[in-house]
Design a protein around this nucleic acid. Structure first.
Lengths: 213, 213, 213, 213
DNA sequence: GATGAATGAGCGTTCATTCAT
DNA sequence: GATGAATGAACGCTCATTCAT
């Protein structure tokens, strides 16, 4: 009985260890996610290539799970940032959501790349629909949170009436674009601005853009 | 001397012809730029594979030059859209710039993908810093145009005083983010909105966000 | 002692159950016997993969035993078809044997493929000589039945005197060749004939060829 | 000019050399054709794996071409054996065709295996339809030759009227079955007969079976 | 006796790059 | 300057077999 439980635990540990190895390869490489190789992941996890496939269906599945993991952590942070229990003005909620988003991806920019890459290449084909749906669903949940804040703003007369889901999407797009734009040092130099400063300004601009005059 | 000149000219022609072939392959493929192979480019240009490497350092360099070319065309369109000769209000200029940007990438999404990919994969290593800088410089020129329109808006009291270069960057980031966000059908579905509609709304939101109250 | 006997019995049952699972996988697949994997057999038998190897030396051994089983069933059918108890003319016996052979393999072409494959691939190395000999012996028994019918024909003056074992072998070769030839749709098309019609004609031709003039 | 010609020649030589290497791997191995590995072929030809794919589309194509080569040689031998220019009785023609067939495959039994294998596995998918058709066409030409001899026999009253194409197929099936049956030493032992003796007897039996009484 | 996690050699195929001619 | 044949590392994935527990 104990044996069985231990087995189970070890298996889960191994699984995690492969996932961790994948994350390391994925995050370490200066190369970006498409340089993640099953060979490399296996080597880093100190298991054979076959073992990797014992735990995961495909390379893409591993990356998708990695992403999902990230998104779930992100979502938790966003929910925390939203501060549902606190009586906050809508713009403040958006500010907090935006900065939580920033903190998350500033800490792990590769997740951001992975999120962006998810639509491309072999992903849609190689990843089980279920996993794919989970990824999309996590994204949707995050978006819903933003939309909720926008709705609050509209309801309270702070924001102009609008399609709140689109508005949420616009904020999302802006924040993504800001993260991406300044990811490269040369572009930061070009704009002569620090990433966080720029990001905050972008966030404020969109919030301002939603505001009732 | 004449011979030398002719030689030079022929060489340049060959170079252009390879680049043109690369562009054809690049734009033809239904699969995106990462399907561009040196074999195919050489075949299309009717030269040997070796010759391609005689004129270009690497496949990535070719793609970078292609992008540069594209950016230059984009810049021309932006300049046209800016309408320097016409007496236009600043917000209208931004609107025109934004839609020219949209039109360009809607017509050739591959360029957008290439632009996004530029920071990643083998590009940073395989592309000479000089070429890289040229790409950035083309971006800068575009940005300057946007900044100029913002400056006009600030000067005329339409927009709030601000760091115009940052403001231009914010608009840019938003538009890029919007293009990227909606590139994938599933995300379009998720937002329940058409790409152009969303893009326009994002553009308006940022313009609004810049406006003086 | 009783325990020992029970153990023995259980072991045999387990063995049979694995073999049955293997047969199911073997006959299920649309893809032929080379799609049989140990994983699948183990899963179907609801035992671990290790257990499979506890009872059988190799995958090839399992397949060989499967074939042996099949051949034994075939032999039973041939004996029935022979109709030892009935007073039949020799040619009729051959006809019945031939058609029983056809029916067997038409119903389970995989067995035929396996029989053909037996000499090839990893089989000769991976299968114990003993098992191999058993397979051959089963074939011999079938052959003996055919030879017996031929002998009857010779004795009764219906067939020309000949080496009856060779004659039986010739019939066997013809029937095998016919089955194999027409297994592929394209070759059926090429000959413009249906499998059973062709097979019957082949059977008759050889019977005729054995007949006294 | 000479250079060009030499290049061409060398290329053809290389191609042949890879094909020869493939044949060696294919014929040498005790393993049968499905153990033919691109790695092995490349090693034997002393080229890199990539080079193999420079000359051939796929492994299956190589094997198909090998087979085609064999079939063409076989066909030439059959035509010679048929002796169109000589005034031969139909049964003698069949005898000569049959023995030419035997000689060919006795000398290179692997070709026989390859021919049989051609219908299976990845062949139909992995081989260009054109090559596939050529293989079938070569088979058909051989069959036509046999059918022609049978027709002659029917016309001359030596053979019973019959569907000559089916009759040719029956002979073919018998000969194939005989070759296959006795390929394995253990089966030869089992029948207590030498391969050629058996084969001749089978050939005679079918000829006899076609004969008018 | 039974398990099932782990192995690792093996597969066919691709393609950017090099270099002898 | 131009060629194009050759390279070879890399890729994701499979599966029969082993062995510590």
């Amino acid at each position: 009985m104990t044996t069985r439980a231990r087995r189970e635990r070890e298996k889960e540990e191994r699984r995690r260890s492969i996932l961790r190895a994948a994350r390391e390869v994925f995050l370490d490489g200066d190369n970006g996610f498409h340089r993640v190789t099953v060979d490399e992941v296996a080597a880093r996890a100190e298991v054979s290539k076959g073992t990797v496939y014992l735990y995961f269906e495909s390379k893409e599945t591993i990356l998708a799970l990695l992403l999902l993991e990230g998104l779930e952590r992100l979502l938790a942070r966003l929910q925390e940032a939203y501060g549902a229990a606190e009586p906050l003005p809508a713009d403040e909620r958006l500010r907090r959501l935006g900065m939580a988003y920033f903190d998350f991806f500033a800490a792990a920019p590769e997740y951001f790349r992975l999120l962006v890459a998810m639509d491309r290449g072999r992903f849609p084909d190689a990843v089980k629909p279920e996993v794919y749906r989970q990824v999309l669903s996590a994204s949707l949940d995050g978006l819903a949170l933003v939309a909720q804040a926008v709705q609050q703003g509209v309801d309270e007369g702070l924001f102009r009436p609008c399609d709140v889901r689109s508005a949420a999407g616009i904020l999302w797009a802006t924040l993504n674009g800001s993260l991406e734009l300044l990811e490269h040092p040369l572009r930061r130099e070009m704009l002569g601005v620090e990433q966080e400063t720029f990001y905050r300004a972008a966030l404020e601009t969109v919030i301002e853009g939603l505001a009732r005059r």
